[in-house]
C-alpha cells in the first residue's frame, strides 16, 4: 500500500519533470541542449530531443535497452566472443584532444566526471621532441600483469583478448593497480550516486560499479556483441580510434575500413612501452604529418588544461 503510494508520487514527479523539460526545450532549445543539468540521482532515464510530426520539440525517453535479453552474467563473461581477437589502433596524427571519446565512454559507463576509463595524456618524450595528444584506454595486454597478480581471479583474460573485471568477485586489494604499468585501473573510493544504476551488473558493461572494487576500460564487449563498436570509437569526430578483429585483419573507425596489418606496417604502428613485454592489444600510429597543431587541444575548460601544466611544452608556452 505504502509502496504503491510512493511509486505513484515518484511517477507524478517524473511526469512533471518531463513536461517541464519539454516546455523548457521549446523555449530555448539551444541552451537546453548545451547542458541540461543532469542529476544522476533522480535522472528520469536518458532522454533524446526530437521533433514530433506536427513540429513540436519533445523530449522522449531514449530507447530502453532490454538488459535482461542480452545479459551476460559474470560467469558467462569469462568466455570470450569465439574466434575473435580484438585490437585497437589509435592514430596519434589525428588526435586534437577533442575528448569526445572520454565523454561518451564516461556516459556509457556511468562514470563521475573525474573518473575516466579513457584518459588523454599530453606526451612529450623529451624537451626537444614534439608534444602530442595520446588517448589511453586499458591496453588489454596479452600478458596482463594485472591478471597475474589478482589473488581471487576477479580479473581475467578472455579468449578474444579482452581483460575484464568481475566486481562481484573483486575484494578490492588494489594489487592489480600496482601491477598495471599503464595506470589503467581505478578504484571506487566511495559510494556515489553513479554507482546506483538500475541495471543488472555484468562485467561486460562494467555497470553498475561497486564501492571498494576496481574498474577500468572494458573494450565494450556488450556493444561488440551487438555488432557495434565501442563508444569511444564511434564518438571520435576525427576518426582517431580504429577497432576491429586482428584475426580477420580488419579495423575500422566508422568511416574508413582498413586491413590491420597494412595500417600497422605502412604507418609504423607501435605499442606503448613495448619493452615491458605486457603485449598490449592497443597500437599507436606515430604522430607524424599531423592534421592539427598540438595547441588545438587546449580548446578545453581550464580544469582540463591545468592537467598538463607540467609538460615541458606547456611550461615553455606559459613563459612566452
Amino acid at each position: 500500500m505504502d509502496d504503491s503510494l510512493q511509486n505513484n508520487k515518484n511517477n507524478r514527479r517524473k511526469f512533471l519533470r518531463i513536461s517541464l523539460l519539454t516546455g523548457l526545450s521549446a523555449v530555448a532549445a539551444k541552451t537546453v541542449f548545451a547542458d541540461i543539468p543532469v542529476d544522476p540521482e533522480n535522472e528520469p532515464g536518458e532522454m533524446v530531443t526530437l521533433l514530433s510530426p506536427d513540429g513540436q520539440l519533445v523530449k522522449v525517453p531514449k530507447e530502453k535497452i532490454n538488459y535482461m535479453e542480452k545479459y551476460i552474467s559474470p560467469e558467462a563473461s569469462h568466455q570470450g566472443i569465439p574466434h575473435r581477437k580484438f585490437v585497437m589502433v589509435i592514430d596519434l596524427a589525428k588526435c586534437k584532444n577533442a575528448r569526445k571519446c572520454v565523454e561518451h565512454c564516461q556516459k556509457a559507463h556511468h562514470l563521475p566526471p573525474q573518473q575516466e576509463f579513457m584518459k588523454v595524456y599530453l606526451m612529450q618524450e623529451s624537451e626537444e621532441a614534439a608534444p602530442y595528444w595520446m588517448p589511453k584506454p586499458c591496453f588489454h595486454c596479452d600478458k596482463p600483469l594485472c591478471v597475474s597478480v589478482c589473488p581471487v581471479g576477479a580479473t581475467y583474460k578472455r579468449s578474444d583478448g579482452i581483460v575484464l573485471i568481475d566486481n562481484e568477485r573483486c575484494i578490492g586489494c588494489k594489487f592489480c593497480m600496482t601491477g598495471c604499468p599503464y595506470s589503467a585501473r581505478q578504484f571506487n573510493w566511495a559510494d556515489s550516486p553513479y554507482l546506483h544504476v538500475d541495471q543488472p551488473y555484468s562485467p561486460e558493461t562494467s555497470v553498475p560499479g561497486k564501492e571498494g572494487t576496481v574498474s577500468k576500460c572494458d573494450f565494450c564487449p556488450d556493444m561488440i556483441r551487438d555488432g557495434k563498436m565501442p563508444h569511444c570509437v564511434t564518438a571520435c569526430p576525427m576518426g582517431v580510434i580504429y577497432f576491429g578483429d586482428q584475426l580477420e585483419d580488419i579495423v575500422t573507425n566508422g568511416d574508413e575500413t582498413i586491413r590491420f596489418s597494412e595500417l600497422i606496417t605502412s604507418r609504423s604502428g607501435y605499442r606503448h612501452l613495448e619493452d615491458l613485454g605486457t603485449k598490449p592489444s592497443v597500437y599507436y600510429l606515430p604522430p607524424v604529418n599531423r592534421q592539427f597543431p598540438v595547441e588545438r587541444g587546449f580548446d578545453q575548460p581550464d580544469e582540463i588544461n591545468q592537467r598538463y601544466k607540467d609538460v615541458p611544452f606547456v611550461k615553455k608556452m606559459h613563459k612566452n
Partner: peptide, 19 residues
C-alpha cells in the same frame, strides 16, 4: 587496504596460486 572486507573469504574460496 582491502576495499571489501566482506569478501575476505574469497581469498580461500577462489585462490589463485599465481598471485
Amino acid at each position: 587496504c582491502i576495499g571489501r572486507l566482506d569478501r575476505l573469504p574469497f581469498l580461500f574460496m577462489y585462490p589463485r596460486i599465481q598471485s
